[in-house]
Design a binder for these strands. Structure first.
Lengths: 273, 273
DNA sequence: AGCAAAATGGAATAGATATTCCAATTCTGA
DNA sequence: TCAGAATTGGAATATCTATTCCATTTTGCT
């Protein structure tokens, strides 16, 4: 391909982007990343908007366009405007499009899960009581060490929370049941147990909660039923109900709650003494 | 509806257009007809272009916009541009404000993450190309064994996919880097590597992909940029973009895509021979 | 460390584009 | 047909956007 010609098609643009993005200085890399992740906005944005999105000066974005081979932003934009097939009327029609593809096709499934996810997120605001959430956050903030346990379906949530806690420098232990070692004695006075479990509830999780409760270790629970097997230990309970599609659920709402809780704890956590 | 207010949604625009188009003089009728038939061009055209298309003077089109209730063409265009990219322009600044104002009560934070999640899910319908998704599903379905790798932030997604695969009896190995053992030789001809990585990309994941690519093992990637460090291996790429809060995101969209993909593979997997 | 080259930020400028205004034209109704 | 109102065309202007330029900072090299 001619190094100096401006890309004449989206495909050419794509290639040039890849080719160019090998080694770029910092700001130009930001441009490349942002542009790559927001190709669909190029057609409808101004340089200033794109530049702000990428976190650079408009002039940097201009230079970037020139590196790609365009005379400037306008020329690049023209490419996208011309190949803009118009189109996305709104969310529900887009979804419908996806669903209309033959039943069971991957994209039809994606449509279903997206829809289920959005519904779950919406109901999350109803099922989670703000006061309880605050209570949970405070309890966890006050803990010496937060012990996170979640197995099976809930393991991914547990690992995500552990990830955020660690990144935010909140002391945290993830109980994984690796090698069936359960480390229950790592939970000390002053610590708090955060248990995540959904039907079917995994017994190692329940055991750990039972043990902790017996020792008066406070427990925060993320679960799907107020009358589940955890209920008798009277934990601070955050209820999540995922709308399921077929036999499977995407844990969108659970992770959203988990993230909000973890970030809350991380931002209110007093600096270690 | 207020006769003088500018339509705030595509739906309102639609209604106003219908309502207004009852009796219009010649030139304005041309505007109405052309606009109605080319709604999708509004976002990416100039007044001059639209006017030429409708066969009228720019000023006529301006008048038409004003009759619809907009202050001018720009305001009408803004409606279309915004509804095209989805309504989350400066979400990250919103979060920043929230943080600065110490208004970060846990439930306020939850609200923000729910919003972000819903927006991310919606944009997922744009960033994931149905054909590519199908290709990925087929590739994975045909694999002898699916090797899943995702570390750091992506680990939770990886574990969730591994969970679903196992439940659906799809042969799968989760690469955890536990003990820094990387088990790359467990990946054999006929297998497929599913790599999940988001900025900042973790190097063990990249290493594994590089190694696999060198051995012509097909790679499916879930990532956030078409020009990320994975790009040079030319994997089948599924793009997901989530808005972040500082370094954190609620991975709602990622998990939704992961679930859809895993379930697709699970349901189309040919019975083992 | 010290120099040269590369990269960057930001303000100044050039260029497009939207918008307004008013004179010219076309309708409407007696 | 004619007066008056509505409509229209097009040029003038205001506003917004892209682009350039250069002083300053950063990077890479010896």
């Amino acid at each position: 391909m001619d190094e100096n010609a401006s890309p004449a098609s989206l495909k050419a643009f794509e290639e040039r982007l890849l080719e160019v993005s090998e080694n770029l200085p910092k700001r130009l890399r930001q441009c490349a990343d942002y542009v790559a992740a927001n190709r669909d906005r190029i057609a409808v944005s101004t340089v200033a908007e794109m530049a702000e999105g990428a976190g650079v000066q408009p002039s940097a974005l201009m230079r970037f366009c020139q590196i790609l081979g365009f005379s400037g932003f306008s020329e690049m934009q023209r490419l996208f405007r011309e190949s803009y097939v118009g189109g996305w009327p709104d969310y529900s029609t887009r979804l419908q499009h996806l669903r209309e593809k033959q039943e069971g096709s991957p994209s039809a499934l994606l449509g279903e899960f997206v829809d289920a996810g959005r519904a779950s997120l919406e109901s999350l605001l109803n099922t989670v009581d703000p006061a309880t959430l605050t209570e949970a956050a405070n309890l966890l903030s006050a803990a010496n060490v937060i012990h996170v346990v979640g197995l099976g379906r809930s393991f991914s949530t547990a690992t995500y929370m552990a990830y955020i806690f660690e990144k935010m420098e909140v002391p945290c232990v993830l109980h994984t049941s690796l090698g069936k070692l359960d480390n229950r004695h790592a939970i000390r006075d002053g610590d708090v147990l955060l248990a995540i479990t959904f039907s079917p509830y995994s017994s190692p999780t329940l055991d750990l909660v039972e043990n902790a409760a017996a020792r008066n270790i406070p427990v925060v629970a993320m679960t799907d039923s107020a009358i589940g097997p955890l209920a008798k230990f009277r934990p601070v309970t955050l209820l999540v109900s995922e709308v399921d599609f077929g036999a499977f659920r995407s844990p969108a709402a659970t992770l959203c709650l988990a993230t909000a809780l973890a970030v809350s704890v991380g931002t209110t956590k007093p600096v270690a003494v």
